[in-house]
Design a protein around this nucleic acid. Structure first.
Lengths: 158, 158
DNA sequence: CTTGTTTAATAAGCATGCTTATAATATATG
DNA sequence: CATATATTATAAGCATGCTTATTAAACAAG
């Protein structure tokens, strides 16, 4: 039945994520950017010099994780911490020239990895995949409180 | 177009995995099992006392990661390392009574988290999701070497 | 102005993954 | 038997996430 497949959903998503990360890092390692660093850089470029707190919010990770990611990225010459104009508590995170010039190349690598991963997955299935994942992120983000909304068929242990 | 959605695939899968893990750990923390420990325990029970090397192979993580996971699980009373009958290099990993009695309860928690995540995702979409992820895992596991032969379906190594 | 609260960033320490290296044991070969 | 190679587990050290606690600055209220 499908039930057995659902049991493996967590494993599947975990594995897919791990494999994507692994491939991206292998392909992107000539640039010296890890996948976490790449995710952060995308936000920095898109948001135009966000603060660390803003990055934590966008990436849904803790501020301390951002802080340490940026430690390493600053060391690697990818971003700089710049003082905020008015608020002396705040750092703006600014991409370096190195980041800006590598950006499109690395973006192409990412797109390439995605296409490699999606070989043999037709358009309909891609659309369904993305819709399903988007729904799931919504379900899991929103109801930090609720437990079991509308039509759940929860299965006990099998 | 769809291209923009594909760009976000990595982010989506990453987020979904992170959120699933977070929910599972919140719900399962009364048992004191993390999600990595849970994944390992499932293998241990299914495989009937596998060796650490076998676990590393099954979970596709490094032997050293297994070793340290088991360090903590042994401390937590979830598994024991038992000497192999003939090969003195080898440890068999054996679930404790505590594991066996908690197993179905935790399995139910996992199933519950999956259902919560999948609320509003209909049967067709679930099937497509699982098929797509399975294909992706295949693509990313098999071709550790190739780069992007157009629409590949090579299943070289397993 | 002083006191208290909130916010931004960091520190300390843990879990889980990784890579690279080592120790102990098994096995294969001269 | 002795030596070379495999395999199993572990060690050391790093990256990235977490929780909890701290520091510095901003802001609000008396």
């Amino acid at each position: 039945m499908k039930k057995t497949a659902i049991d493996q959903l967590g494993f599947l998503i975990h594995d897919t994520g791990r494999l994507l990360r692994r491939h991206f890092e292998k392909r992107g390692q000539e640039y010296g950017l890890s996948s976490a660093q790449w995710r952060l850089l995308v936000r920095v470029v898109r948001e135009q010099n966000p603060t660390q707190a803003r990055l934590a919010e966008l990436m849904e990770i803790e501020p301390i994780s951002v802080s340490r990611l940026i430690d390493r990225m600053e060391q690697g010459g990818w971003v700089r911490r710049c003082a905020h104009e008015t608020d002396r508590r705040v750092n703006r995170v600014v991409p370096t020239d190195k980041s800006l010039s590598a950006y499109s190349a690395i973006k192409a690598v990412a797109a390439d990895v995605y296409e490699e991963a999606m070989a043999g997955v037709d358009e309909d299935m891609r659309a369904a995949l993305i819709s399903a994942l988007t729904l799931m992120v919504g379900n899991l983000s929103s109801d930090e409180t609720a437990t079991t909304p509308p039509n759940v068929e929860q299965q006990a242990a099998s």
